[in-house]
Design a protein around this nucleic acid. Structure first.
Length: 449
RNA sequence: GCCGGGAUAGGGUAGUGGUUAUCCUGAGGGGCUGUGGAUCCCUCGAGCUGGGUUCGAAUCCCGGUCCCGGCCCCA
C-alpha cells in the first residue's frame, strides 16, 4: 500500500515545476524592473500574528499547533502579516518607501476545490510608506504588468472604502456589518429590504454599487455633495447634474474642500494616475474586501476560465504597521494567487535538455573525466545504467536530446571526440575544446531564443 | 461544515457476482558487446482502504481516505 498525499496538497512533476518556475521568473522580472526587493519570512509564526490581523475567527482555517515549548504557532495562511511584522521589527528606520516582494507557500485548512488547495503559493508585494494615490496606482499597474508578463488578462475592479465607510457612518452601528456583508455577497434583495427597513434607502448605496466605471464615480461625487451640510448655500445640485460625465471630476474635487474624512479626491487622483499608467480597469464600489484594516482604495482582479474561484489578485491600501506595534504607516500591497494563475498562463514552453555523453563500457573512466570537463560549460548527462552504446543512444533519442557526444577507444586513440547531431544524424570528429565551444554557443542561443 | 460525481499497473482504459483481470502506452532487458525514436522477443507492473453480504466480491452494501465539480468561506 502506498502512502497518499495529505488532502489538498500537490506534487509537482518536473514538467509542471519547470513551468511554474518560468512563470515565477517572468513576474519576478517585472517586480525587479519596478525596483522591488525580494524578502522571505518563516513558514510558521506565532498564531497571534494572524489573529491580531484577521480576528479570532480565522483560527478554524489555520493550521496551528503547540510546539514542545508550549508556544501557539501557525503555518502562515498568507504573507502580508509576516512581511509587515518583519517591517515593524527590522525595517522601520530604513528609507521610505520600502518596495518589497515575496513568493511563498501558505496553508489554509479549507475544503479543496478547483483553484483552492490547502497548500498554495502566493506572490505579492508591499509598498510601504508611500503617498496613497501614487502607491495605489503603482501597485495596481504593477499587478497588471505581472499578469501580462505571463499572458494573463484579468478584469481589474477598483473600489474605494472611504466612501462606503462614510455612508455606513450614517447608518446605526448595529446594521453596518450586515450592510457591508450584503454588499460583499451581492445580496441585492436583502440589502434593499434592510435599507428600506432602517429608512436609509436615500443614501444611494444600492445605486452606487450597481454602477460601474465613470458613472459610478459620478454617482459617488453626487452622493458626496448631497451629504454636505452646504454651509455656503444650495448651489451644489445645479453644479452636479446626475449622469453628466464631465462634471464627475470637478464634483469629486469639490468634495475635498468640504469633507475631510472622505477624500474622494484622493481616489480621483488614483484613477487619474492609473490612466497615466495605461491600465484598463473598472471603478466598482462593490469591491469592499470586508476587512477593517483596509483604509482606502481596494482592488480585485478576476480571470476567466477558472470555475468558481475566479479571483486571482486582491489588494489595497491598509494600515497594519501600527496594529503590529509600529508607527502608523500607510502601505499598499497585493497578493496574487499563483496556483490559479498557473491554470491560465499563456507562455511558450522551452525546456533545455542536457547534452548526452555516450561511451563504450571499456572507457568509462575516461568518459567520466571528459564529462567532468564538459560540465564546466554545458549541462550534460552520462549513462549510469551500464547500458551498451546502442542503448545509450536509444535513451538519448527518446529523451529528445539534441546532441550526443560519443567516446570510445577509437576517439581516445585519435585524441578526438565524436559529436552527433541527433536531429539529422550528422557526425563530426572534433577536439574536446571545439565541442565545448560549439555546445556553449548552442546553449547561449537557446537561452536567448 | 454541506451537496453531487468518482477511484482498476507509472499514465490512459475494459470488464459490473464465477477459471490465470482486458487492451493501449510506459519502464527494464535482449535481438544489435561502436551508433537512434522503427520492428520483433522477453520481463515488470493494478481493482484506494477497512468491514459486511455470499460457496465465491474489482463488481453488491456500509464506514473511512483521497480526487473532481459546486455551496459556505476566502485574511
Amino acid at each position: 500500500m502506498t502512502i497518499q498525499r495529505p488532502r489538498g496538497t500537490r506534487d509537482f512533476l518536473p514538467e509542471e515545476t519547470e513551468k511554474r518556475g518560468r512563470a515565477k521568473k517572468a513576474m519576478q522580472d517585472v517586480l525587479e524592473r519596478w525596483g522591488y526587493q525580494e524578502v522571505a519570512t518563516p513558514t510558521f509564526e506565532h498564531l497571534e500574528l494572524f489573529t491580531i490581523k484577521s480576528g479570532a475567527s480565522v483560527v478554524e482555517e489555520i493550521y496551528s499547533f503547540t510546539d514542545k515549548g508550549g508556544r501557539a504557532l501557525a503555518l502562515r495562511p498568507e504573507l502580508t502579516a509576516p512581511v509587515m511584522r518583519m517591517y515593524v521589527s527590522e525595517l522601520q528606520n530604513s528609507p521610505k518607501p520600502q518596495r518589497l516582494w515575496y513568493f511563498g507557500n501558505c496553508f489554509r485548512y479549507e475544503r479543496p476545490q478547483r483553484g483552492r488547495f490547502r497548500e498554495f503559493w502566493q506572490m505579492g508585494c508591499e509598498l510601504i510608506g508611500g503617498a496613497k494615490p501614487d502607491s495605489e496606482a503603482e501597485a495596481i499597474a504593477l499587478a497588471d504588468k505581472m499578469l501580462k508578463s505571463v499572458g494573463v488578462t484579468g478584469d481589474i475592479h477598483v473600489g474605494y472604502l472611504g466612501l462606503i465607510r462614510t455612508l455606513l457612518s450614517k447608518i446605526e452601528a448595529e446594521h453596518r456589518s450586515s450592510v457591508m456583508r450584503m454588499i460583499d455577497k451581492k445580496e441585492r434583495g436583502a440589502l434593499a429590504a434592510l435599507l428600506e427597513d432602517i429608512g436609509q434607502s436615500h443614501l444611494g448605496i444600492l445605486e452606487l454599487i450597481d454602477l460601474k466605471g465613470q458613472s459610478a464615480l459620478d454617482k459617488a461625487a453626487e452622493i458626496v455633495l448631497d451629504m454636505e451640510p452646504s454651509p455656503v448655500g444650495e448651489t451644489a445640485p445645479a453644479d452636479a447634474p446626475a449622469g453628466a460625465p464631465a462634471s464627475g471630476r470637478s464634483s469629486a474635487r469639490q468634495g475635498r474642500a468640504v469633507s475631510s474624512e472622505l477624500r474622494l479626491e484622493e481616489f480621483q487622483e488614483t484613477v487619474d494616475l492609473l490612466e497615466a499608467h495605461g491600465v484598463n480597469f473598472t471603478i466598482d464600489f462593490e469591491v469592499v474586501r470586508g476587512l477593517e484594516y483596509y483604509s482606502g482604495t481596494v482592488f480585485e482582479i478576476y480571470a476567466e476560465g477558472l470555475g468558481a474561484q475566479r479571483q486571482i489578485c486582491g489588494g489595497g491600501t491598509y494600515e497594519l504597521a501600527s496594529l503590529f506595534g509600529g508607527k502608523e504607516t500607510s502601505s499598499t500591497g497585493f497578493g496574487l494567487g499563483f496556483d490559479r494563475i498557473m491554470e491560465i498562463v499563456q507562455m511558450e514552453g522551452s525546456r533545455t535538455l542536457p547534452v548526452f555523453l555516450a561511451f563504450t563500457p571499456d572507457v568509462k573512466v575516461q568518459a567520466t573525466k571528459i564529462a567532468r570537463e564538459l560540465r564546466k560549460s554545458v549541462p550534460l548527462v552520462i549513462d549510469v545504467m551500464g547500458r551498451s552504446l546502442s542503448a545509450q543512444l536509444k535513451a538519448a533519442a527518446s529523451a529528445g536530446a539534441k546532441f550526443v557526444v560519443i567516446v570510445g577507444k577509437d576517439e581516445l586513440d585519435a585524441g578526438m571526440l565524436t559529436m552527433r547531431d541527433m536531429s539529422g544524424g550528422a557526425q563530426e570528429s572534433l577536439s574536446l575544446a571545439e565541442i565545448e565551444e560549439r555546445l556553449k554557443k548552442h546553449f547561449q542561443d537557446y537561452d536567448h531564443a
